[in-house]
Design a protein around this nucleic acid. Structure first.
Lengths: 181, 181
DNA sequence: CTTAATTTTCAGAAAATACTGAAACTACAA
DNA sequence: TTGTAGTTTCAGTATTTTCTGAAAATTAAG
């Protein structure tokens, strides 16, 4: 007479698979809108919602993508630090698992984006400010001021994000919120 | 005998044009790395470092781009609220000028990105959490927890950015920094 | 209404990006 | 050494995004 619960469990398992699929698809679309490779976002979504590490082949099958595609995007995720490869003893296959802690994810992503995107931008501004700081005339002064304002802003943003990520406890943010009216 | 200063001024003007050009080019590349259309970033860079409003034709000439390209990207910038079109009385041509205040730029960009990128993502998570909240089994529970954690995080981020942008004085940030160690 | 200036649209071209699939490579075990 | 399971690379292809240029639409003025 345990037919009912079993049925329910199977129905639930099917519903879960479907929900995960939906999440993976939607997250891919969102990642895309955020300027992130769709497949990379999908693999990430899959890994953060799967209880066990997966192999390249499992990911290929689940997302219906080629080996090269899966491989490359997994490498990128690893290089971001969002995914680790794990090797089980006695097995030759490589498994992949994602960092699931949301706060840690935030720290990783902000550190990497600072390094890959903010820093280069700051460098460009620095260079432009340098090149124009001794030029005469009001236009040159205005240009220099504008560049400097941008530069200062990015520097501050970099600093803020850096400090937030560095503060180990995610609880700092909710706390700081009180001060922001 | 005012030859010297004039020469110097002309040299400076040339250097300024060159510096602005460099800035526009580099900013285009950076925007591109950030997932922003290169031309759009270039037009924006040009407008925030030019003392007077420019016409579509001037932008086309400066950046060596087609009318359609200039037009479309200007419309996009206007729809973001980063650029305004101004009409001079007696003239039929449309001029464009950018918001130059860095703090206001930040507010505009974060408001728009929240609206265009954060909200949709939050909607997807909401939906996924809803669909799985009543499913039985540890896997379903784990999935639901993970989605919920993501959802809560985005909600908080949305809130933080919203409050920061709302606080009119940019001075709040430097002040708040003190508390972040 | 007609003309001329200006803006908008859009089909097709070009460029950039992402993906596939198969071959080459690597590492381990027999 | 040879065979095998698995990983990596990459040339060619497909897809998506961006851009051009010219025609169509709009607007203001005569």
């Amino acid at each position: 007479m345990n037919q009912k619960p079993t049925d329910a469990n199977q129905a639930d398992r099917a519903a879960l698979v479907q929900a995960r699929d939906e999440f993976v698809t939607q997250w891919g679309a969102i990642g895309n809108a955020w300027g992130i490779n769709r497949t990379m976002a999908q693999i990430h979504a899959l890994l953060i919602t799967t209880p066990v590490p997966l192999t390249t082949d499992e990911i290929m099958e689940d997302l219906k993508i080629s080996r090269g595609n899966a491989h490359g995007n997994l490498r990128d995720l690893v290089s971001w630090g969002l995914v680790r490869s794990v090797v089980r003893k006695g097995e030759r296959k490589e498994y992949f698992e994602a960092e699931k802690d949301v706060w840690k994810m935030f720290c990783i992503i902000s550190r990497e984006r600072r390094r890959r995107e903010l820093r280069p931008a700051m460098g460009v501004l620095q260079e432009c400010a340098e090149r124009t700081k001794n030029l005469k005339g009001p236009e040159a002064a205005a240009f220099n001021d504008q560049i400097r304002a941008l530069s200062d802003f990015l520097k501050m943003a970099d600093d803020v994000v850096s400090k937030i990520s560095a503060s180990q406890q995610s609880s700092i943010i909710p706390w700081a919120m009180k001060f922001l009216k």
